[in-house]
Design a protein around this nucleic acid. Structure first.
Ligand SMILES: [Zn+2]
Ligand SMILES: [Zn+2]
Ligand SMILES: [Zn+2]
Ligand SMILES: [Zn+2]
Lengths: 136, 136
DNA sequence: ATGAATAATGTAATAATATAACATTTACTT
DNA sequence: AAGTAAATGTTATATTATTACATTATTCAT
């Protein structure tokens, strides 16, 4: 084999296929729509997708959008554990912006402190109408 | 009838029953666990619960926890539309704290502005381990 | 009061999302 | 090569949510 077809050689075949699907998509995908896209690559059962998504999420390559029951490839070079991320979702065109800056992490740290909770994972999703859709 | 049994007389019977279930619960409930609690009050189908939850959410009496696919009664006198709310969830004991102050609203307004999006609804959920569970 | 319009409900069927269980294969370590 | 851990294949099932359509209750103008 001349070249590793995986984007990241540490990924397994199923993980690579799922990540490619998400990278190719212009928006978030449900697990079952990923399954449908990968049926011609041999995928037959939802668990193949969910297992790959679990790992990809663990690695930080994929995020789950809780309010949409769907998944999206990380748009950042690396969303390490310390960096909290927020998603801004247009309810009209379904475009998702992934925002990740220190002010988000700081805000969540303050919130955790106020609530006397040791933070594990934060989930911030803002639904609205994007500029382009608003103009129409 | 001497007295209206509803907490809020504007609520219908099904809405009141669902809200009472959530008020009685010590944590968030799934729609199906609400259904089970209300079978002895005549509930037979999930739609009875989901329809009541839709209205209660619209009125601001109930919030949906997206990351848990579950619902919780609002702990504030009134969570009006302008006040963003954040939920802090202990992954060990499942206690949920509802936080609502102006800094949360301000933070989401800044986020919306950065993303050039007109905000509709925000969802902030922080998972962690609460003080009590941490000590154990 | 009466009838039209609106809102809420009842009920059955089905769709959409996610996991459990167990056998098999592959990759890594020694 | 043998042993271990990780990943995969496959079937069945659990959980969450909605569609569709008939019925009943409430509201409001006449
Ligand atoms: Zn990311
Ligand atoms: Zn848009
Ligand atoms: Zn509230
Ligand atoms: Zn706790």
């Amino acid at each position: 084999m001349l070249q590793d077809p995986n984007i990241d050689s540490s990924l397994t075949k199923n993980q690579s296929l799922v990540l490619e699907s998400l990278n190719d998509a212009r928006g978030p995908l449900s697990a079952y729509s990923i399954l449908d896209k990968l049926r011609n690559k041999g995928f037959k059962a939802p668990l193949q997708v969910y297992r790959a998504l679990d790992k990809l999420t663990e690695f930080g390559f994929v995020h789950r959008l809780e309010s949409l029951n769907s998944f999206i490839a990380c748009k950042h070079a690396s969303c390490d554990d310390s960096a909290a991320t927020a998603f801004v979702i247009c309810d009209s065109c379904e475009v998702v912006q992934e925002m990740s800056d220190i002010s988000i992490s700081n805000f969540m740290a303050v919130l955790a402190n106020k609530a006397s909770v040791k933070p594990i994972k934060s989930n911030i999703e803002l639904h609205g109408i994007c500029n382009d859709c608003e103009k129409k």
